[in-house]
């Protein structure tokens, strides 16, 4: 399938900034590979990227089936389901509007498993539809149908492979870049409060480029190092990444200079004592990327996310306060 601007808008995470920016597709019933009245009916929501991937998978596996696209306010299946953008009524509405009952001879619906937080099998059964929860990944739906609507335990589990993580990271980087674009004028004004006048262009360019580059590095590191992270908490991940970055930024240059015998060993202590604004920025930024990024992984519960946000914002405020009161270092 050709990938137009809509595909890339979705990939770049437009919907992260505002759900209304999500690209929607038309709801309705679509038939593939000469599907007839006996063919199975798959259900999905109307987020462009979701429908695109479902279509791609159907064509790849050459499945003879119908696809019922349900109005989900342009949100993907899982987020839409937990967020209340799609429910049993949306599925029943779509069935009515497409007069699905006249198009197929059977009454079976294959729902995506992740829609289970808001679409009730029992209510659909009351309306005469036998709904089944298919596999998590659309790529497994072919074997699900072949296997007489049975899935293995692995097919019912969410995975988060490297490709998905890097894709997720890219969408977040675009989102964070816009956030920083909005935030830098505020930081510039704050910077001018306490010291000599800072030229706008210099400040904007140097801090934005620095922050965006660092955030991108942190995000990519978290995406790659995901399997070896100690917990699922985004806050802890941010902390681990930040401390690691401090180690690389502070220890390695000093060790190099020590090896070249150009500095005194006591300089190491001094360098660490001067946990200056650079260090604070690195740690703060890493925490921000950590708890922002962690929220969109499939490992983090809502409760844990709330805890992360409280801990993260608390630490950020503390770091800002330290940076504000001790601009030359803590000691």
């Amino acid at each position: 399938m050709n990938k137009g601007w809509k595909y890339y808008t979705c990939i770049l995470g437009a919907q992260l900034m505002w759900p209304r920016l999500a690209v929607r597709t038309k709801m309705g019933l679509f038939s593939f590979n000469g599907a007839d009245s006996e063919s199975p009916v798959l259900v999905t929501t109307d987020f462009y990227l979701t429908v695109h991937r479902v279509r791609e998978a159907i064509q790849e596996e050459n499945l003879k089936c119908h696809l019922l696209v349900v109005d989900g306010r342009g949100i993907n299946v899982w987020c839409g389901s937990r967020g209340g953008n799609v429910d049993t009524d949306s599925v029943l509405d779509a069935i009515d509007q497409t007069s699905l009952a006249n198009q197929v001879s059977h009454r079976n619906l294959i729902l995506p498993q992740l829609i289970a937080s808001s679409v009730s099998k029992a209510v659909l059964a009351d309306n005469g539809w036998n709904a089944m929860f298919g596999p998590v990944e659309i790529g497994d739906v072919g074997s699900f149908i072949e296997n007489e609507y049975e899935k293995t335990r692995e097919q019912g589990m969410v995975s988060f492979n490297l490709q998905a993580r890097l894709e997720n990271n890219m969408a977040h980087m675009v989102f964070e870049m816009f956030m920083f674009l909005l935030m830098t004028p505020i930081f510039w004004l704050l910077a001018n409060l306490g010291g000599p006048f800072v030229a706008w262009f210099g400040y904007w360019w140097s801090s934005l480029a620095y922050i965006v580059l660092l955030a991108w590095m942190f995000g990519t590191f978290m995406a790659i190092a995901n399997p070896i992270m100690p917990t699922t908490s985004g806050y802890v991940r941010g902390l681990v990444t930040g401390l690691f970055a401090l180690l690389v930024l502070k220890i390695i240059p000093v060790m190099f200079l020590l090896w070249q015998s150009t500095i005194d060993p006591s300089m190491i202590v001094l360098d660490w004592a001067l946990l200056d604004t650079t260090g604070l920025t690195v740690l703060g930024l890493s925490l921000f990327v950590g708890f922002n990024w962690g929220g969109s992984t499939p490992y983090l519960g809502e409760d844990q996310m709330t805890r992360d946000i409280i801990a993260g914002l608390g630490t950020l405020v503390l770091l800002f306060a330290l940076g504000f009161y001790f601009p030359a270092g803590i000691f």
Binding site: R82, A116, S117, S118, S120, K121, A122, E302, D303
Partner: peptide, 13 residues
């Protein structure tokens, strides 16, 4: 492992 997605709560008959 629970991530509070509430799918089980919603589906339990």
């Amino acid at each position: 492992n629970c991530i509070d997605c509430t799918a089980c709560e919603f589906q339990c008959p």
